[in-house]
């Protein structure tokens, strides 16, 4: 794909540039050519919109929060490790221990 003021992009070019377009890393000339293509190509407009929405939905779907009980089990195991490693419990106390 030649990059210049009269560059004409195909649908294949536009879809191939989506990551860079959404990250705003394209040159001004390529952005102009990209947006000129969108003006005349409703399927690519639909693709861009649904691609952007997919990113948003996938981000939410793949996000998992750590359950409190997992956190508590982890802390207990690590305290044991620290104690085994050299008396970690004696050298410092946690915030909860200090305030209890």
């Amino acid at each position: 794909m030649a990059d210049g003021p009269t560059t004409r992009l195909t649908c294949q070019d536009v879809i191939g540039l989506l990551v860079d377009y959404l990250e705003a890393t394209l040159t001004e000339e390529t952005v102009s050519a990209f947006e000129r293509h969108l003006e005349i190509c409703p399927p690519c407009v639909a693709y861009l919109r649904t691609y952007r929405k997919t990113r948003e939905l996938a981000s939410a779907a793949a996000r998992a929060e750590m359950p409190d009980e997992v956190k508590a089990r982890l802390r207990e195991l690590l305290l044991e490790q620290l104690a085994r490693k050299g008396g970690g419990r004696q050298r410092g106390r946690s915030r909860e221990e200090r305030t209890s």
Partner: peptide, 24 residues
């Protein structure tokens, strides 16, 4: 140096991120 409070701070800072990435 074996300080438990440092462990708590590192856990507070990173455990959720580690879990989220590992679960993902």
């Amino acid at each position: 140096a074996g300080e438990v409070a440092a462990l708590d701070s590192l856990m507070a800072r990173y455990s959720s991120r580690v879990y989220r990435l590992a679960r993902g």
